[in-house]
Lab assay of single mutants.
Amino acid sequence: DCSRLFDNDLPDGWEERRTASGRIQYLNHITRTTQWERPTRPASEYSSP
Protein backbone atom coordinates (compact mmCIF):
# COMPACT_ATOMS: atom_id res chain seq x y z
CA ASP A 1 0.00 0.00 0.00
CA CYS A 2 1.08 3.53 -0.74
CA SER A 3 0.09 6.63 1.11
CA ARG A 4 -0.51 9.81 -0.84
CA LEU A 5 1.59 12.88 -0.41
CA PHE A 6 0.51 16.25 -1.74
CA ASP A 7 3.09 18.10 -3.76
CA ASN A 8 1.98 21.10 -5.80
CA ASP A 9 5.40 21.36 -7.47
CA LEU A 10 4.89 18.28 -9.64
CA PRO A 11 3.99 18.68 -13.32
CA ASP A 12 0.34 18.11 -14.30
CA GLY A 13 -0.83 14.51 -14.18
CA TRP A 14 1.66 13.29 -11.58
CA GLU A 15 1.17 12.23 -7.99
CA GLU A 16 3.85 11.62 -5.37
CA ARG A 17 3.38 8.56 -3.17
CA ARG A 18 5.35 6.91 -0.42
CA THR A 19 5.69 3.13 -0.46
CA ALA A 20 5.21 0.98 2.64
CA SER A 21 9.01 0.97 3.04
CA GLY A 22 9.09 4.79 2.96
CA ARG A 23 10.53 5.25 -0.52
CA ILE A 24 8.97 7.98 -2.70
CA GLN A 25 7.63 7.04 -6.11
CA TYR A 26 5.77 9.04 -8.73
CA LEU A 27 2.51 7.95 -10.34
CA ASN A 28 1.67 9.05 -13.89
CA HIS A 29 -2.13 9.21 -14.09
CA ILE A 30 -2.11 9.33 -17.92
CA THR A 31 -0.07 6.17 -18.56
CA ARG A 32 -0.85 4.55 -15.20
CA THR A 33 2.82 3.87 -14.59
CA THR A 34 5.19 4.67 -11.73
CA GLN A 35 8.79 5.74 -11.61
CA TRP A 36 11.36 6.46 -8.91
CA GLU A 37 12.79 9.60 -10.53
CA ARG A 38 10.99 12.90 -9.95
CA PRO A 39 9.24 13.90 -13.19
CA THR A 40 10.09 17.16 -14.91
CA ARG A 41 7.47 17.13 -17.70
CA PRO A 42 3.67 16.84 -17.63
CA ALA A 43 2.35 13.27 -17.59
CA SER A 44 0.76 13.76 -21.02
CA GLU A 45 4.24 14.06 -22.60
CA TYR A 46 5.12 10.48 -21.63
CA SER A 47 4.04 7.64 -23.90
CA SER A 48 2.08 4.61 -22.76
CA PRO A 49 4.05 1.38 -22.38
Rank of each mutant, 00 (worst) to 15 (best):
R41K: 15
N28M: 00
S44I: 09
Q35R: 04
I30D: 06
E16M: 15
E45K: 06
S47N: 07
H29M: 12
T40Y: 03
E37W: 05
I30W: 03
A43E: 10
S47E: 03
N8T: 14
S3Y: 02
A20Q: 11
Y26C: 01
I30Q: 08
R17Q: 14
G22H: 00
D12A: 13
Q25M: 06
R38E: 03
S48I: 10
W36N: 05
L10M: 06
G13N: 00
F6E: 15
R4G: 11
D1V: 02
D1E: 02
F6A: 15
Y46F: 13
I30F: 07
R38Y: 05
L27K: 08
A20T: 13
P39R: 00
R23W: 04
Y26A: 01
T33N: 13
Q35N: 00
P39W: 01
P11A: 06
A43R: 09
T33L: 13
S3C: 08
Q35Y: 08
R38G: 02
S47V: 09
T34V: 08
P11S: 03
A20F: 01
T33I: 10
R32G: 15
C2A: 06
T40I: 14
P42C: 07
T34A: 04
E16V: 10
Q25T: 04
N28R: 00
E16Q: 09
R32F: 08
S48K: 02
E45P: 03
P49R: 13
R23Q: 13
T40L: 12
R18K: 08
R32M: 15
L5C: 05
N8G: 12
A43Y: 06
E16L: 09
R23C: 08
E37D: 06
T31D: 12
S21I: 00
E37H: 04
Q35G: 02
E45H: 10
R32P: 07
I24R: 07
D12Y: 12
D7R: 05
I24W: 05
L27F: 08
D9S: 14
Q35C: 09
L5E: 08
L27T: 12
G13D: 03
R23M: 05
A20L: 05
T31V: 03
D7H: 03
I30Y: 06
D1Y: 02
R38T: 00
T19E: 13
L10A: 02
D12N: 13
S48E: 10
A43I: 06
S3M: 15
T34K: 03
T40D: 08
E15Q: 10
R4T: 15
Y26T: 01
A20I: 04
S48P: 15
E15S: 08
L10K: 02
P11D: 02
R17H: 11
R18T: 08
R38A: 04
D9W: 04
T34R: 05
L5P: 08
L27Y: 12
D7N: 11
D7L: 05
A43D: 09
L10F: 01
Q25A: 09
R17Y: 13
P11E: 04
W36L: 10
S47Q: 12
R38Q: 03
R17P: 00
R4F: 15
D9G: 10
P42G: 08
I30G: 11
Y46V: 11
P42E: 05
S47D: 11
G22F: 09
R41A: 15
R38V: 05
D1N: 14
I24C: 08
T33Y: 03
E37I: 02
D12E: 10
T40M: 14
H29Q: 13
S21P: 04
L27E: 12
W14T: 02
I30R: 06
W36R: 05
D12H: 13
R38F: 03
W14D: 01
S21Q: 10
F6D: 14
E16T: 09
R38S: 03
D1R: 00
R38H: 04
L27H: 06
E16A: 11
Q35L: 06
Y26D: 04
S21T: 14
A43H: 07
F6W: 06
T31C: 12
D7P: 04
A43S: 07
S44M: 14
R17I: 06
R32E: 13
R4A: 13
G22Q: 01
Q25R: 03
Q35F: 12
Y26L: 00
D12K: 15
D9F: 04
Y46S: 15
C2H: 05
T34Y: 06
R17M: 13
S47C: 09
P42H: 02
S44E: 12
L5G: 10
S48T: 12
R4D: 15
P11G: 03
R17V: 12
F6Q: 13
N8E: 06
T31K: 07
I24M: 03
P11Y: 05
N28E: 02
D1C: 02
D12G: 09
E16D: 00
G13R: 01
Q25D: 03
E16Y: 01
R18Y: 05
T34G: 05
E15L: 07
G13F: 00
W36I: 01
E15V: 10
P42R: 09
R38L: 03
N28F: 00
L5M: 12
L27I: 06
N28I: 00
N8I: 03
D12I: 11
R23S: 10
R23G: 11
E45Q: 05
G13A: 02
A20C: 10
L27G: 02
A43L: 07
W36C: 10
P39S: 02
P39G: 02
E45R: 04
T19W: 02
I24S: 08
Q35H: 07
R17T: 12
D9Q: 07
E16N: 02
P11Q: 07
L5T: 13
L27P: 01
T31Q: 05
A20P: 10
S21F: 03
R18F: 10
P39A: 00
Q25K: 02
L27R: 07
W36E: 15
W14E: 02
E15W: 02
R4Q: 11
T19Q: 08
S3D: 14
T19R: 03
Q25E: 13
T40N: 14
E45M: 07
N8K: 11
S44G: 14
F6G: 14
I24Y: 02
D1G: 00
R41S: 15
L10G: 01
Y46M: 07
R4H: 15
Q35T: 08
S47W: 05
T34C: 09
E16F: 05
P49H: 05
L5D: 06
S44L: 11
T33W: 10
D7M: 06
Y26M: 00
P42T: 09
L10N: 01
S3H: 11
T19M: 08
A20D: 15
D7A: 11
I24F: 03
D9Y: 10
R38M: 03
S47P: 09
T19P: 09
S48H: 12
T33H: 13
S47G: 09
T40S: 13
T31G: 09
D1I: 08
S47Y: 15
E15G: 04
E16R: 05
S21E: 15
A43G: 11
R23E: 15
R23L: 06
P39Q: 01
C2Q: 13
D7T: 13
T31N: 14
N8V: 07
P42K: 12
N8A: 07
S21C: 08
H29C: 11
H29K: 14
G22T: 02
T31M: 06
E37S: 04
R17F: 08
S47M: 10
P39K: 00
Q25N: 04
S47I: 06
D7I: 14
D1S: 00
D12V: 08
W14A: 02
T34Q: 07
G22K: 01
Q35M: 11
N8C: 11
R23Y: 02
Q35P: 00
T40V: 13
D7K: 11
D9K: 14
P42D: 02
G22Y: 00
S44W: 06
R41E: 08
P49G: 11
D9R: 13
N8H: 03
R32A: 14
L27N: 12
D1A: 01
R4K: 11
T31P: 01
P42L: 04
T40P: 09
D7C: 06
R17K: 14
E37N: 01
L27C: 08
S48L: 08
T40C: 14
P39Y: 02
N8S: 06
H29G: 12
Q25I: 15
D9E: 10
D9H: 09
G22P: 01
G22N: 05
Y26S: 01
T19I: 08
P11M: 12
Y26V: 02
C2G: 03
Q35A: 03
R4W: 08
P42Q: 08
F6M: 10
P39F: 00
T33D: 11
E45D: 10
T33F: 13
D9M: 05
T19Y: 01
R4C: 14
W36Q: 07
I30M: 07
F6V: 10
E37Q: 00
E37A: 01
H29L: 13
R18A: 11
T34F: 14
E15H: 07
E37F: 01
P42S: 11
S3Q: 14
G13I: 00
A20V: 12
I30S: 09
L10T: 03
S48G: 12
R41I: 15
S21N: 08
Y26H: 01
E15D: 07
A43V: 08
P39T: 01
L10H: 01
E16S: 10
S3F: 09
D9C: 06
R4M: 10
D1T: 02
D7V: 10
D12M: 04
T40K: 13
A43Q: 05
E15K: 03
T33S: 15
T34S: 05
F6C: 14
P39N: 04
I30E: 07
E45Y: 07
Y26W: 04
I30H: 11
P49A: 12
W14L: 01
R17A: 08
N28P: 00
F6N: 12
R38D: 00
A20W: 04
D9A: 13
S44F: 12
S44Y: 09
T40A: 14
L27W: 12
L5Y: 07
A20K: 10
D9P: 09
A20N: 13
P42I: 07
S44P: 02
L10P: 00
A20E: 14
Q25P: 00
L5N: 15
E15T: 13
S48W: 06
A43N: 09
S3V: 14
P11R: 03
S48D: 13
P11L: 04
E16W: 07
